[in-house]
Write a protein that binds this DNA or RNA. Structure first.
Lengths: 108, 108
DNA sequence: ACCATTAATCGTAATATTGCAATAAATAAA
DNA sequence: TTTATTTATTGCAATATTACGATTAATGGT
């Protein structure tokens, strides 16, 4: 127990859940928002911006990278992170399709 | 540790994270999809539909109810669940606004 | 070569999540 | 009232997540 039974669900359901899950932490939401706001890529000042410890931010960045929402380029000693445009769009389409379920029905 | 430091983030960031988090499990995605598909409200056959134990489904329903995405009406011995139209729309708008961040920038 | 800077990784503690068996609660039907 | 049906709750085990100090790895500058 303690482990999600992914095999019970469709690929679509699992994909939506994985993407929603990674957005299910305010630090990761903040990282995404900041990456969009800065417009050009940033790196380690996310630590200053957000106020969590460097290993914690690094861990959140890793999770965002794992699902492909961001990518990081090494520039000298620092790493420049940015939104992965294509994957972000794919993710957005997937979520939007799910969220746009038809809502014209009578309820109990 | 082990606890999210919500005080470091804005209300908006926390709200988005809470909503995304509740959609971050395939069983809850499946429940939502099924509630939409059935069109009229259903109750305990979510257990048959999804294939997890009854207490497990009950727990997921509770979490969806806690954030207001669904509501349940008692009908005899069973409970009729359905999407909470207004809250679903509110959630959708919140998520859509977040997902629709402008993506016209140059990356690293 | 040495030191400074930056980010990733390791190790660990605290807490949360997932899942289910067992049980309880509540109503309907007999 | 007894029995069946349905859902919620309790209690617990297994695993996942969150956070951070300490350390490591990698590069740049001196």
């Amino acid at each position: 127990m303690g482990v999600t039974k992914s095999e019970k669900f469709t690929n679509l359901q699992n994909d939506i859940a994985v993407l929603a899950k990674v957005l299910g932490h305010p630090a990761r939401v903040a990282i995404i928002q900041h990456l969009f706001k800065i417009n050009t890529c940033i790196c380690g000042d996310l630590v200053d911006e957000i106020g969590l410890a460097q290993p914690t931010i690094s861990q959140h960045l890793k999770e965002l990278k794992n699902v492909g929402l961001i990518k990081g380029n090494i520039e000298g000693t620092s790493v420049c992170y940015c939104i992965d445009k294509d994957n972000w769009t794919k993710m957005k389409d997937l979520m939007t399709e799910f969220l746009d379920l038809d809502i014209t029905f009578n309820c109990c």
